[in-house]
Amino acid sequence: MSNHLQWDDARVFLALARTGTLTRAAKQLGVGTATMIRRLDRLESALGVRLFSRHQNGYFLTDEGQSLLNRAEGLEQAGQAFGAAPMHEVAGHVRLATAENLADPFIIPALEPLYEMHPDLTLELITGTQTVNLHRRDADLAVRMVKPTQGNVTLRTIGTLGFGLYGSSSYLAERKIKSASFVQDSDSLIGWVETSSHLPSAQWIIRALAGRPPKLMTSSLSSQLAAAVAGMGLAVLPHFLARRHGLQCLVAELGVNQQIWLVMHSDLVHSRRIRVVADFLIALFEKNADELTYAKP
């Protein structure tokens, strides 16, 4: 592959690599999709390689495209340093995959200072239940509750999510032994559907039920929380979520706490835009470590 890469070419390449579609890349650069196609074809012809594989749902970097990424981002950083923007500002698009129960109540409310420091930074939060593949560049980095065991990724723990057994004050007031800090045979428990039975919290509920059926089974943490708030029974929930919804803790230590992992594609570790978001997440989770881990921070 040729080493000749101009800044204008790098802008086209980076916009498409980060957004994944011609339409969004063209909008980011303020050009038409036809111009994007023409400039991309010119770049690939000049380099003599195919940089993207074209699919119905978007453009994905080939191995050759991945190898060009750091060089293109180096040109971008040099351009930013040479321009009028202060060096501490970072521009670009970052895709972060995480669980909805972390994104909505915890990460999103804390984003404003990040945007104030980097007004040209844009963030895309992916919180669906679909599998997100960092190697395929479905996202640039991820906050996960399960440690990845394969792929070209760099990872570190950034915290612990603590779980306890919770119920509403109305439910606890109706229990046969109101002060008992254990599961009674008469207790209604909120469990998980079979496809989620591998989760540590689901396993704890199964053991506590001892063969009895749960009062309700759900497929998401948000619905578990809603059921507990509605007084339908006891649920294993993250301390910080249960506390924010006024639930009462019955058992604070269940042995099902989960480590929180920050994962990023190894090729992006030195990217300034990725590093800025990663550092923000690390600081956020460290600052709120007690709230996330313990029943009474």
Rank of each mutant, 00 (worst) to 15 (best):
V263E: 03
A228G: 04
L262T: 14
I177Q: 13
L216I: 15
A208C: 12
L221C: 09
F163W: 09
S170K: 04
A228D: 01
N257T: 15
A230K: 01
V251P: 03
A227L: 03
G164H: 01
S197T: 06
G255S: 07
L234Q: 03
Q224D: 07
A180G: 02
A235E: 01
N257R: 14
I158A: 10
L209Q: 00
Q258Y: 12
G255A: 08
A227T: 01
T149A: 10
L165D: 04
T195S: 12
D185N: 13
K178P: 08
Q248C: 14
M217W: 08
S169M: 07
H245Y: 10
G167I: 04
V143E: 10
F163C: 09
L250A: 06
C249S: 11
S168C: 06
L262E: 14
G162V: 12
G159P: 07
D185S: 14
A226T: 06
P148G: 02
S168Q: 01
E174M: 12
A139H: 07
L225N: 02
G151Y: 05
G159K: 05
S168P: 01
K176N: 05
Y171Q: 05
Q259H: 14
D187S: 09
Q258H: 13
A139P: 07
S196F: 13
A226N: 04
Q203D: 05
S219E: 14
M232G: 13
S170M: 08
Y171A: 08
G231F: 00
L262R: 09
A142W: 04
Y171M: 05
F163H: 14
R144P: 06
F240C: 05
R144Y: 05
F240I: 05
Q184N: 00
G211A: 00
G164K: 00
Q248F: 15
H198F: 11
H239K: 00
L241R: 09
K178R: 15
I177E: 12
L250C: 06
S201P: 06
K178A: 12
S169P: 11
S220K: 00
V256L: 13
I205W: 02
S181N: 15
S220F: 01
A173L: 12
A235V: 02
Y166L: 08
H245T: 13
L216N: 09
L225T: 01
A252C: 14
L199Y: 13
P148D: 02
L161E: 07
Q248E: 15
R212H: 09
L141K: 04
R156Y: 09
L199H: 10
A227E: 02
T218A: 12
A208I: 08
L250W: 04
W204N: 09
L247N: 06
L155Y: 00
G211N: 00
I205P: 03
L241Q: 11
V251L: 06
T160Q: 10
A226W: 00
T154S: 13
S223D: 11
A202I: 04
N152P: 02
G162H: 07
A227H: 01
L262Q: 15
E194Y: 01
V229Q: 03
M217E: 15
L172C: 13
L189S: 03
L209D: 00
Y171D: 06
H245V: 13
S168A: 09
T154F: 10
M145Q: 11
T218F: 09
S222F: 05
F182H: 08
E253D: 15
F163G: 08
